[in-house]
Design a binder for these strands. Sequence first.
DNA 1: TATTGTTATACTCTATAACTATA
DNA 2: TATAGTTATAGAGTATAACAATA
Lengths: 147, 147
Amino acid sequence: MNVAFLLSQLGVHAAAQFAERIAELDLTPPQTGLIRLVASEPGLSQQAVAARLGMPASRLVALVDGLDERGVVERRRNPQDRRLHALHLTKAGEELLGRIAVVGRAHEQALTEGLDAADHATLQRLLTVLAEKQGLTPGVHPGYRRI
Amino acid sequence: MNVAFLLSQLGVHAAAQFAERIAELDLTPPQTGLIRLVASEPGLSQQAVAARLGMPASRLVALVDGLDERGVVERRRNPQDRRLHALHLTKAGEELLGRIAVVGRAHEQALTEGLDAADHATLQRLLTVLAEKQGLTPGVHPGYRRI
DNA sequence: TATTGTTATACTCTATAACTATA
DNA sequence: TATAGTTATAGAGTATAACAATA
């Protein structure tokens, strides 16, 4: 089979497996992407977050609502411009992020268990080259656009 | 970035790019999967095809309807058991399959253009190992289940 | 009664666009 | 008037389950 099909097959499989794993934390992949983004760049407006995740702002609202009600994320109004809602993780959000990382490591391990260390490193290098060539933004999953 | 995330990112990207390309043939990825399967194993019943593609038979009906109306696929009733509809490609279907192959080669080329021949071969080998370990069926895309 | 294919229904998810509040 | 966030609406796509034909 060619590389393109293998990549697509494995990638969609990996995404589905990850979705199953984080479902145990009661999270969906877009929610996880939001949490990770807010963790790495706290204080972004909802418009900015929506743009980075590649989704309409209207869709982000429901995403933030759910995590806000669960006490994972919070909206902080900007006093200088009260239209803006800066997004931040709460303490519980930081803790959840830690659990997401644990799940992520287990996922990585399960997916690559057939490879020795050298092959693992080679694969990582080659995939990184492809991702750069394809113009993919590190850490931003194209599937957040529609899942 | 870890291998799992890179794979997922690249895989979903590759699937989206492929979907765009075959849209020029007025096809969706599930339709393409159906055409390929019928080409490689002509005469399967709709139930058998649905099982292999991992979708409910009720969903396959609409898929076959569309390709049937376009003269790409045809249902042949089995005289021994008139409940069964064996699926076959028409002449036009064979021709379309050829155009799909052309698109597939262009897609492969565009996706791997950053790699030299040795790296390309290495990547193909490593991905094949992973796909086998993960129990993925050659030629069957897990995304056909829901796109 | 069981199985194949089909149709109907009800549900989920989403983007678009209207709306509000602030500037 | 323009922008951030929100809500409403309408559409696409789907699985589930009921149904008809055949065994």
